[in-house]
Design a protein around this nucleic acid. Structure first.
Length: 289
DNA sequence: CGTACGACCTGCCCGC
DNA sequence: TGCGGGCAGGTCGTAC
């Protein structure tokens, strides 16, 4: 579910709740998500302050006063929700009024920041993950060490991408999905960026010319910034920390647009749907070459 | 090494 | 109404 823009929206939503107060309590309601949670997670979080919240690719990094960092990945269906008990109570009908903490069965980890505010990690499919590791070497963590550059960072350029794509034997779609090439893109934004740059996802990565890669690089940046501005894409699951949807799905041009007329002005093509690497690709049969 | 594929999970939607 | 199949924003281990 969440690609870079959605993860960034979650990060930004959490920031106002970071201050000098310590984590008061942690509830861990199962031993694992995709992998085992740190067995001593409670001990390492309680009485510790969250100093800052950063993002690397699709990982949220909670910088802690204990010189450790908590890494959170939302997988396909994960959410981080900030729950305020006062609002929570207001929504509840009579039968729930004696239970101030409505617990969903997929609420796996609950971090209490104040007596009435908590961060809830909810993830039905449990493809997400949480770990805690020393901040000093956090970028050597196995989840982060092989990631390519941030697409919205200074290291990402058309020169860089051209070199990376040049020797690939796979499709350009597969190359952009590879997190070691560029970090943070997923199925939606890869396909949207390819549509913007009029390149078919089926093209071999090495066949793209410099001009095409320049356009593709600009399109990746453009679509990510626009999606962040719109609050992310909410097709089914995504919600921000307040439980609200984003609005970028209204701006999707190809993803989930099978059989629709191409939204490119001056193009009479139709959006196609094919499988690539077990994932669905969408592209225009006319303007994407 | 690069590449492709199955596996990991639950929930939802569709067709029969 | 119920059931089976297929699908979903991601990533890793394995096999070639």
């Amino acid at each position: 579910m969440p690609e870079l823009p959605e993860v960034e929206i979650v990060r930004q939503g959490l920031i106002p709740f970071v201050n000098e107060k310590e984590i008061q309590k942690v509830e861990q309601r199962r031993p694992d998500l995709r992998w085992p949670l740190p067995s001593d997670m409670k001990v390492r979080l309680v009485n510790v302050k969250i100093q800052n919240i950063l993002r690397r690719s699709k990982y949220i990094l909670f910088n802690l006063s204990s010189d450790e960092t908590m890494l959170v990945h939302l997988g396909m269906s994960g959410r981080l929700l900030v729950i305020k008990d006062k609002e929570d109570n207001k929504e509840q009908s009579g039968i729930f009024k004696f239970n101030p903490c409505k617990i969903n069965k997929h609420d796996h980890v609950i971090i209490h920041l104040y007596p009435d505010i908590r961060i809830v990690y909810n993830d039905p499919r449990r493809f997400g993950a949480i770990d805690i590791a020393p901040t000093k070497h956090i970028y050597d963590h196995k989840w982060l060490k092989n990631l390519g550059p941030e697409p919205l960072g200074n290291e990402f350029s058309s020169d860089y991408l051209f070199k990376k794509l040049k020797n690939r034997k796979s499709s350009v779609k597969a190359a952009l999905m590879d997190q070691t090439v560029v970090a943070g893109l997923g199925n939606i934004y890869v396909l949207e960026a390819l549509w913007l740059s009029k390149v078919s996802p089926l093209r071999l990565a090495g066949s793209l010319g410099r001009r095409e890669v320049e356009c593709l690089t600009a399109s990746i940046i453009k679509v990510l910034l626009a999606a962040i501005k719109a609050g992310g894409t909410s097709l089914q699951d995504f919600r921000n920390v307040g439980g609200e949807i984003g609005y970028f799905q209204q701006s999707l041009n190809v993803y989930d647009c099978f059989d629709q007329k191409c939204k490119n002005r001056d193009c009479s093509g139709t959006i196609q749907r094919v499988k690539q690497l077990g994932r669905t690709s969408y592209y225009c049969n006319s303007c994407q070459k």
